[in-house]
């Protein structure tokens, strides 16, 4: 489902973020990508989402070579992924409901169905009744849950999260971890980049570790 074939990424400033990384994530798997800050976790996720292109090697998502996709093909790849970035990236001038609706709007989803899906996604992440709230009035954990609702509203087969529990207190972090566990149980393939891997170890996740851009054995 997801495959990295000897992928390297060097940024314009000469920094080697990833070096010769090869890995495979199977359908329905929950993979925890561990490593310290600057280990290359975010770069790996950006390569998956087509936000960066590899300097060498190939990244495959659902049999598509991400690096070989044309710019006009990239949106269709991103629609098959649920992305939760480190900063929640909610639009602060729109309600939680409108934020969660956004992925459906960009794909031109019929309004009636879209509204039903948004309500379902908000309920799934425990934000039922919060649709009319503005993001900045929510707690950090609630904002992260809104971002997760936005990532799952399209019902993606792959969910990718970059440090989803960063900046959250332990109680909120456990709630978020439980959410990902629930999605995994529903059959979603999940890749979690985190420096707090202990949160996910009770859920039988496979663990790999990056250090200085290299995959540790």
């Amino acid at each position: 489902m997801i495959r990295f074939d000897q992928v390297s990424k060097r940024y314009a400033d000469g920094h080697d973020a990833l070096s010769d990384v090869s890995l495979e994530i199977r359908h329905g798997e929950l993979l925890v990508l561990a490593g310290h800050s600057g280990a290359g976790k975010s770069t790996l996720i950006k390569l998956l989402a087509g936000l960066e292109r590899p300097t060498a090697g190939r990244v495959w998502v659902n049999d598509q070579d991400v690096g070989g996709l044309r710019p006009n093909q990239m949106p269709y790849l991103r629609r098959s992924l649920g992305l939760v970035m480190q900063e929640h990236r909610l639009l602060t001038d729109r309600t939680v409901f409108d934020n969660v609706m956004l992925p459906l709007l960009v794909t031109g989803y019929p309004p009636g169905d879209a509204e039903r899906r948004v309500h379902a996604a908000l309920e799934k992440v425990g934000l039922k009744g919060f649709g009319g709230a503005m993001p900045l009035t929510l707690s950090g954990g609630e904002q992260q849950r809104a971002a997760i609702a936005r990532a799952i509203v399209n019902r993606p087969s792959i969910l990718i999260a970059d440090e989803p529990t960063a900046h959250l207190d332990p109680a909120y972090a456990r709630e978020i971890a439980a959410l990902f566990r629930a999605f995994h149980a529903a059959g979603v393939t999940i890749l979690l980049a985190t420096h707090d891997e202990t949160l996910f170890s009770p859920y039988g996740a496979r663990r790999i570790e990056l250090a200085q851009g290299r995959l540790l054995a």
């Binding site: 989402a49 936000l51 006009n72 949106p75 991103r78 639009l91 960009v106």
Partner: peptide, 16 residues
């Protein structure tokens, strides 16, 4: 800019 970036990240086409 922020809204545009988020929309592209969520799969919006350039035309959209």
């Amino acid at each position: 800019r922020h809204e545009i970036a988020v929309s592209l990240l969520l799969g919006a086409t350039r035309s959209f």
